[in-house]
Computed example of a mutant assay.
Amino acid sequence: MFDSFQISALKNLLVPQNKIVIITHYNPDGDAIGSSLGLKHFLKQKGLEADVIVPNDFPKFLKWMPEAKQVIIADYKRKIAGEAIYNADVIFILDFNASHRSGNLVGPWIEKARAKKILIDHHQQPDNFDFVYSDVTIPATSQMVYHFIEALGEEELVNKEIADCLYTGIMTDTGGFRFRSTSATTHRITAKLIENGADPAQITSSTWDTNTVSRLHLLALILGRIEVVKDGKVAILWLKRDELKQYGFQKGDTEGFVNYGLSIMGTQVSAFFMEDLYEDFVKISFRSKDYVDVNQFSRNHFDGGGHINAAGGKYMKSIEETIEDFKVKIEGEEF
């Protein structure tokens, strides 16, 4: 957490005359949107206005959150997003650890911005910013935003809008509170969020009970050909571009697919490979159990990273070559 001197300095920055922008990473997920909107609503409670900017669009199943439709999508509103970042006095950097993680458009804008930059993030090896709150042991940036509110001594400002957003971020990034990094503190905070208006049943239904027909077709496809290697310890799932097109893929349709590999008895790692819809590379998602470090594996081999048990990457070969190379590389790992 920020020390007392930093908290004092931050309080001096969070004043009405300063223009505040909140930015999250490319391909925003539940924690990215939940933490960003949760912080926005908290600042609103303090009488402050803030713009939330995302590099590209986010899944429809997250757009139920309060003021999600006011989020500025830089891909669609480049001029508005660029001017907001250029004119900002304060920039919050949420749920990513380095400017380039916000993409080729927004990343350079962050680097050139004159604003004071405040990082709140739980990924490994963060870049340097004016203020850095980094903790890889915390399962969700949304939980860290709540800790930030606590450090400011303003928990009484947490209302239903804040609670809904932060609960969503924590729920999604902990895989429904099942990942190993989910702690007693995480549960205590979610209890406080419920006390302040978050409705677990409504949030779960709005976020996860939103399957499209295309998603179910794609899920049936990958589950029908799932492959297990390395003596049953590694599951492989994959989708090709023409399959995505065939079933009318929509953004967010493959969210959580990688987790199905871990549901197989005896697996320690699940890897999901998907051809990008428009460019010639393969997107990769890794998940693992216990102390199997897919973050370092992804950094070493697939130009990626993330957390010990959840990471992503990409590969510039065909999907067939990517999977074959993965099989060779994973055989060399000990777990």
Rank of each mutant, 00 (worst) to 15 (best):
V282M: 00
D280P: 14
E155A: 14
G306P: 12
A271K: 03
L39Q: 02
D57M: 07
I170G: 04
S205G: 10
P126K: 13
I330W: 01
V258R: 03
V258T: 12
R299S: 15
Y76G: 10
A32V: 04
V132M: 03
Q202N: 09
Q124K: 15
D127M: 09
V15C: 01
E195D: 13
E111H: 10
G175D: 09
G232S: 13
L39I: 09
K46N: 07
E243V: 12
K317N: 11
D199S: 06
T210W: 11
L105C: 08
Y260L: 09
I319N: 03
S134T: 09
K317Y: 05
H187I: 08
V229N: 11
E227D: 11
S263W: 09
R215T: 04
A191M: 11
N87F: 11
P139L: 09
E227T: 14
E279P: 12
V258K: 04
N196F: 02
N309P: 04
V158W: 04
K46R: 07
A84S: 14
D121Q: 07
S206G: 05
T207Y: 00
L39V: 07
D130K: 03
V52L: 03
L10W: 07
F148T: 14
V145E: 04
A235Q: 11
A9Q: 09
V269P: 08
I110S: 00
G248E: 04
M144H: 06
H25F: 04
P108T: 06
Y26F: 15
C165M: 10
F281C: 08
S263D: 12
F5H: 12
P16L: 08
T267P: 10
F58M: 07
V54P: 06
T186M: 13
N295S: 14
K19W: 02
G169K: 07
G305V: 06
K283F: 01
T254A: 08
T137H: 15
T207R: 01
E321P: 09
N128C: 11
A163G: 07
L43F: 13
D31K: 13
L166A: 07
K160Q: 11
G175Q: 11
L14Y: 03
E150Q: 13
V294D: 04
V54F: 01
F286T: 05
T186V: 12
P66K: 04
I53L: 00
N27H: 11
Y247M: 04
S205A: 13
Q45S: 14
D29M: 07
T141N: 15
L152S: 02
A68S: 10
G224P: 08
I194N: 01
D51Q: 10
F131K: 03
D31C: 13
V132G: 01
E154W: 10
N18K: 05
K46C: 06
F286R: 01
I23T: 02
L216S: 06
Q17A: 10
E150S: 12
G256M: 02
E321G: 10
G306D: 10
L237P: 05
K314E: 05
S134P: 07
K40H: 15
H147E: 15
L216Q: 08
L152K: 01
